[in-house]
């Protein structure tokens, strides 16, 4: 019984991280129509920023705040420098550019910070474990679940109740008409990337507290999972991205349990195989974004 609860907690926390990354991808996708593969490098950037901020003796909350801001600034800069000049281009072009940026950033990280993982010394509350009624629950797992729940609610409020949020939602539904409402295009572009950067930063914090180190390619694996999550959930649908993230977390933990140890190396390949099978039956995902009506 205790074991089952632990598995559930693991699946939910891992799924939560994927959900946050997938949300960031989905927000950008809903506005621009492409998956930003360089999103994973924002996670890496957050990791190194946290590593060096802590190394410089900053208190933990300040280091997190600084790294979050760095992550959002990098996301906005990415849009400004790399994607904005391509405005109006085919989403395919944007997708390929994001691959290029991702690759370039990974090389830059390797040159600047070395290829070896760097251990992160995190405060005890992030690495310890709680004993709740005989069940040991890792702090990162618990914090991850709580954080994802709070962020999902906050994002929902932001998108539904605030001027910026509503502008973003309207732009995702009909960009031309959003302009007619007096919404400024550049502000919406920057906002979409800033939010995706923020979500990437929080996801990175949870991710590094689970793995305990930072490395130049640490963003790649979770990005691929989150990418699969957005496809499974239905491209561009925010609820779908969250659902897809949790689906993938559960799937990954389930495979971890049922696969014999010798076969564990095939886990990710199996996940992709299941994705392909899934797409054969639900090509538009679990919760597809409603199709735009023909005008």
């Amino acid at each position: 019984m205790e074991l089952i609860i632990q598995y559930i907690i693991n699946a939910l926390s891992l799924g939560g991280v994927y959900a946050l990354i997938a949300l960031g991808l989905a927000i950008v996708f809903s506005i621009f129509g492409f998956i930003n593969f360089a999103h994973g490098e924002l996670l890496t950037l957050f990791g190194y920023s946290l590593f060096y901020a802590l190394g410089a003796g900053m208190p933990f909350p300040l280091a997190v705040a600084v790294s979050l801001i760095a992550c959002m600034a990098a996301a906005v800069a990415m849009e400004r420098v790399a994607f904005r000049p391509l405005r109006g281009a085919n989403p395919m072009t944007l997708l390929v550019s994001s691959f290029a940026i991702s690759g370039a950033l990974q090389v830059i990280f390797q040159i600047a910070f070395g290829t070896m993982p760097k251990p992160l010394i995190l405060p005890n509350f992030l690495t310890g474990a709680f004993n709740i009624g005989g069940v040991y629950i890792g702090a990162p797992q618990l914090i991850s679940i709580v954080t994802v729940a709070i962020l999902a609610l906050a994002l929902n409020l932001f998108l539904n109740k605030t001027k910026f949020g509503l502008s973003l939602v309207a732009s995702a539904q009909d960009f031309d008409v959003a302009k007619l409402m007096g919404i400024r295009v550049n502000a919406v572009y920057a906002l979409a990337f800033a939010i995706s950067g923020f979500l990437a930063g929080v996801a990175a914090l949870l991710w590094v507290s689970m793995r305990g180190s930072v490395a130049p390619d640490m963003g790649f694996n979770p990005l691929v999972k989150a990418f699969v999550a957005t496809i499974v959930g239905g491209m561009g649908s925010l609820t779908g991205a969250v659902a897809g993230g949790f689906f993938l977390g559960i799937l990954e933990v389930a495979l971890q349990i049922v696969l014999p140890a010798d076969y564990l190396i095939f886990r990710d390949a199996l996940i992709l195989a299941i994705l392909i099978g899934f797409l054969l039956f639900r090509p538009r995902g679990l919760l597809p974004a409603a199709a735009m009506p023909v005008k």
Binding site: Q173, D176, V177, L180, A290, M292, P293, K295
Partner: peptide
């Protein structure tokens, strides 16, 4: 302001 051709309301709002 403009009321565009084909109405173009935000369908999912």
């Amino acid at each position: 302001t403009l009321s565009p051709e084909g109405r173009r309301v935000f369908p999912r709002l």
